[in-house]
């Protein structure tokens, strides 16, 4: 797996373990996602979220998106999640504070989620998507990624930079103590 990251070549052995890896990562992801639903403790939720994000990163690895997986781990799990945990800590007198919800609410929520999932699944199943085995597959190496970012995705890339600046200003303003 890590060799893939380094060389960009998929070793034979990975193909054999792919089902296992898929099961593991998907399992972790889905399980901890639903644990977030069930959990009533905000810190635990953050913890489960970390597992979910990690699992998703694993799935990215599995899908030949190694760069993304790394970013997911660094930025999402490493940055955003820490931010969230900070948020949790700063906004509660007691970090293990519980805010209960009623059972019926949870049923409604899960019901709505399930309904949405069901509808999406129906749509997915009814849509013919031909999976490609195309020969002109793009090389997913870091060079291509960089060149794509500065090519077709130049504007979004720069806009994202500006956005981050604005966000920084906004967040700093909102969070600082001066009235």
């Amino acid at each position: 797996m890590f060799t893939t990251l380094a060389t960009g070549i998929k070793p034979e052995s990975l193909d054999q373990v792919a089902p296992f890896l898929y099961l593991i990562f998907a399992g972790i992801t889905v399980f901890s996602a639903w644990m977030i639903v069930i959990s009533q403790n905000i810190v635990r939720m953050a913890m489960y979220l970390l597992f979910t994000l990690g699992g998703v990163a694993g799935l990215y690895f599995l899908m030949n998106a190694e760069f993304l997986a790394a970013i997911q781990l660094i930025v999402y799990a490493g940055g955003t999640l820490i931010l969230i945990v900070f948020g949790v800590m700063l906004t509660s007198k007691n970090p293990f504070m519980r805010l209960h919800t009623y059972l019926w609410e949870r049923f409604v929520a899960v019901g709505l989620g399930a309904l949405l999932a069901m509808l999406t699944t129906i749509a997915l199943v009814n849509t013919p998507i031909k999976q490609s085995a195309s020969d002109q597959m793009v090389n997913h190496d870091i060079h291509t990624i960089g060149s794509t970012l500065l090519g077709p995705f130049l504007v979004p890339f720069e806009v994202a930079a500006v956005l981050l600046l604005v966000v920084m200003i906004g967040a700093a303003f909102m969070a600082r103590s001066r009235a």
């Binding site: 992801t29 639903w34 639903v37 609410e105 989620g113 999932a117 999406t120």
Partner: peptide
């Protein structure tokens, strides 16, 4: 599955 979980989390 993640979508459903997300919706459920948002609502609960």
């Amino acid at each position: 599955a993640l979508l459903a979980a997300g919706v459920a989390v948002i609502l609960t």
